[in-house]
Design a protein around this nucleic acid. Structure first.
Length: 491
RNA sequence: GGAGACGUGGCCGAGCGGCUAGGCAGAGCUCUGCAAAAGCUUGUACAGCGGUUCGAAUCCGCUCGUCUCCUCCA
């Protein structure tokens, strides 16, 4: 099925066609590992995951997916620096080697990151690579040299800068983002000591060493510029190395359009002579009370914060899938609760399907028209720029109109197969037998009260039964009557 | 100051000129002695004001409000 995608480069929805079907190459801007990811960050990775899963399942492609780990930048250096308050206690004492501190620090948060994305249903096996920037030092340096040799970079005080003014004469700077060069608001967010550059719009490719910071030798021109890479260069270098240029799709959050992705395009083209990719896909932000979730605003939740509140990570995944990736999504705990209920309803339906079947699903070859029609509709929505909300709506409409009790075996079979396939994209459903609720042990005295109530009820002494029920409820337990008897649960 | 978005019923969210999703909550009902759970039924909303059109939530203009980006950002 042909998939259409909104391309930030053309600002239109376009049919997606890979350069070498059935292979698709895709690069996603990953995390900077200086802290735990918050769920706003996670939306970007969930979007990339949704996209690659849809390409596999709906598009039938083989996807080579790369997500980088930024393990060197201002923040990782700052927080791993000797004496940093941000040094995780789990790591023990710091060494006196800045490089080792940086590596230990970023490895720690990388591990946590992988655990987080696994919890929300991103399968590490789907990733071809999760490269660390610091493992691609020679490639980054090679790219910077190429840019320098092409005349689009200059060296100042040991740093290497990209010459945007010069590049603008050779090519368009502002492909993803309309840049109004006249109205650059200068000064507010600029770290003064970094700015030996000729123009504010120039960006750094390589930063000169500062005392006590990790650094690498770098022979360029006729000097050794000891230092470390700038922010944008890693992506360009790793894309070239791991995917080759041009590759098919590049994903990231909208905030990365400028400057990060714009600079990436300029660097890659200036150095390699080729633009990195043809489809740029960006996800919108997760908001809290109408504002971007961010560390600086302090309105963020990490995954572990949310899990600690008893939230199932699958509900976070489904919540994100219930809004289109290109719109802002307002995060609330009420919304999470609403998503949980919706998910459980779908899950109940699947449990019902599983319960009503007593033969091997895979051996069934008869087409079940209803299931085929549903699959067509739902996959068409996914193919339509990943319209997950609409796809979910189709599924709910279907289950509302088709209770499991009224289905033929062939339909049940077809539906199970459909839901399994769907789960290759959604990854929020279970296909086991409905689990038996394992009641936690009930204190003997509560059990005795409940039993007494059951006796009273059987004797039709409802007044006593109600009194006992209230007593049990006052103690924090709930009695649920069933056909055969009763169960007691903690409220 | 510049650029770009957005504003849909109590909440979340589709919609891309006519057929006016879906979820959650609420209400009513069924089943239950009661309760719980479950199931069923039920909702014409598009910020405001103009305009275009046979017809506008959808297109255009203005107003109001909100957000994002403009070299830390998913």
């Amino acid at each position: 099925m042909t998939i259409t995608l909104y391309n930030s480069l053309t600002r239109t929805i376009e049919p997606f066609a890979p350069l070498n079907a059935p292979n698709v190459t895709m690069y996603s801007c990953g995390p900077t590992v200086y802290n735990f990811a918050h769920i706003g960050n996670l939306r970007a990775f969930l979007f990339a995951d949704l996209l690659q899963r849809t390409l596999r399942t709906v598009g039938g492609y083989d996807v080579r997916w790369v997500m980088n780990i930024t393990d060197i930048d201002d923040k990782t250096i700052r927080d791993s620096a000797f004496g940093s308050q941000a040094w995780p206690t789990a790591l023990g004492t710091q060494s006196d080697d800045p490089k080792k501190n940086l590596r230990d620090f970023t490895e720690y948060y990388t591990k946590e990151f992988v655990a987080d994305i696994s919890a929300i249903g991103i399968d590490r096996a789907h990733l071809y690579a999760m490269p660390n920037a610091t493992d691609y030092m020679p490639q980054m340096q090679d790219l910077i040299r190429r840019i320098y040799e092409q005349g689009f970079a200059y060296i100042r005080s040991g740093s290497v800068y990209f010459d945007v003014a010069k590049w603008r004469k050779a090519d368009v700077y502002g492909k993803l983002f309309t840049i109004d060069a006249e109205n650059f608001q200068e000064g507010v967010r600029i770290d003064a000591d970094e700015y030996d550059r000729e123009s504010v719009s120039d960006f750094v490719l390589w930063k000169a060493q500062k005392d006590g910071e990790p650094s690498w030798d770098f022979e360029i021109g006729d000097t050794n510029c000891i230092g470390r890479p700038g922010w944008h260069i890693e992506c360009s270098a790793m894309e070239y190395e791991l995917l080759g240029l041009p590759f098919d799709i590049h994903t990231g959050g909208v905030d990365l359009k400028f400057p990060h992705h714009e600079d990436e395009i300029a660097q890659s083209k200036a150095g390699y002579g080729i633009e990195p990719t043809r489809y740029w896909c960006h996800n919108e932000f997760l908001e809290v009370e109408g504002k971007k979730m961010s560390k600086s605003l302090g309105n963020f939740f990490t995954l572990r914060d949310v899990i600690a509140k008893g939230i199932d990570p699958l509900d976070i995944r489904l919540l994100m899938l219930s809004a289109h990736y290109g719109t802002r999504l307002n995060f609330t705990f009420a919304g999470l609760e609403s998503t949980r209920k919706a998910r459980l309803r779908l899950q109940e339906y699947i449990y019902d399907l599983v319960e009503h079947i007593n033969f091997d699903v895979n051996s069934m070859t008869d087409p079940a028209p209803q299931a085929i029609a549903l699959r067509e509709q739902v996959f068409a929505e996914l193919a339509n720029d990943l319209n997950t909300p609409k796809a979910l709506a189709q599924i709910f409409t279907f289950i509302n109109n088709n209770p499991v009790a009224g289905l033929q075996e062939s339909e049940i079979c077809g539906l199970i197969r459909f839901f399994r396939e769907l789960n290759d994209v959604f990854a929020v459903f279970h296909f086991t037998q409905r689990p038996v609720v394992t009641a936690e042990p009930i204190p003997d005295d509560i059990q005795a009260l409940a039993t007494a109530r059951w006796e009273a009820k059987r004797n039709r002494d409802f007044a006593t039964a109600d009194t006992l029920r209230k007593e049990v409820e006052a103690r924090g337990f709930l009695i649920k009557d069933t056909k055969e008897g009763f169960v007691v649960e903690r409220v």
